[in-house]
Design a binder for these strands. Structure first.
Lengths: 144, 144
DNA sequence: TCAATAAAGGACAATTTTATCCTATATTAA
DNA sequence: TTAATATAGGATAAAATTGTCCTTTATTGA
């Protein structure tokens, strides 16, 4: 469904949000341990998110990745997916055709559209702060 | 969403069903032209489908791939996806965790379950004969 | 029976995705 | 100001997926 990069990115962002909510910055090391992802690879992914202003970072001792409280309210999963995987999940044809749309559809086009719209809506309607609040119920995990 | 193999396989199967409905066998050449897929690669995919008895084939001149009318009524897209991609689309965690289930869920588990079940239901409820009949309205295409 | 046609399948090649390594640069605290 | 810590980013490497090539085997029709 998502690329590995996107999976790691989503897990990392959720962890960073958790930590930011507690007033902590998250170092690369702590992130890749918490979400069980390869550190160097995770670094690249986080760099992309920083460059696109989805999250913040600071260098040096006591540095790390973090999010401002406001950012957490506004940042959706959809934004993360969009940066890391583009919008191909929503727009690409389920059968892999390059030209597939309402005018010139593949046989499954309309069936897929419904499902993809639901996925997109779910990602758009889920903000990081929502997840952080739900996670306080802590039945949830991000690792393995 | 699906692997390339699965995309080609689905397109090929739909074309074979169309042709079988018209009483024709579909040669590898005709299939890969009709659905715009690499012939040798498509051959491998079709071999898998034959081996799993989703479609039939015959060798020699006038040979090719085909489906019995009954098979067409029973064969679902889900069966094709299952052979080519396994059930990972339905069962895998959206965040890539190996252990993610109702008991020990990732933060997005329940949101994803709903969407994946819908996808699975759609594939299970769509038989090849249904597609062939709809395709007679011929606004639909399988190529490019 | 022979030639042509077509699928079966093993070996291998290219491409894309995933992942690592290493150096540079910035920042903090002592 | 220096040592330690941490992100940034280029160059490579490994693994998985996608795709090709070539030989074998089966079947049909003349």
């Amino acid at each position: 469904m998502f690329s590995k990069s996107c999976e790691y990115g989503l897990r990392a962002v959720i962890f960073i949000a958790q930590q930011s909510h507690l007033g902590h910055k998250a170092s690369l090391t702590s992130i890749s341990q918490a979400v069980d992802s390869p550190p160097a690879f995770t670094a690249k992914i986080l760099q992309q998110l920083v460059k696109n202003n989805l999250i913040d970072s600071s260098k040096g001792p006591k540095g790390g990745f973090f999010m401002a409280p406001e950012a957490m309210k506004n940042l959706t999963l959809e934004a993360v997916v969009s940066v890391l995987d583009g919008d191909s999940i929503y727009t690409n044809c389920g059968l892999g055709l390059k030209q597939c749309n309402d005018k010139k559809p593949c046989p499954l086009h309309f069936k897929f559209v419904a499902i993809k719209e639901e996925l997109q809506a779910m990602l758009q309607n889920t903000t990081l702060i929502m997840l952080v609040n739900e996670m306080n119920l802590d039945r949830f995990h991000l690792k393995r």
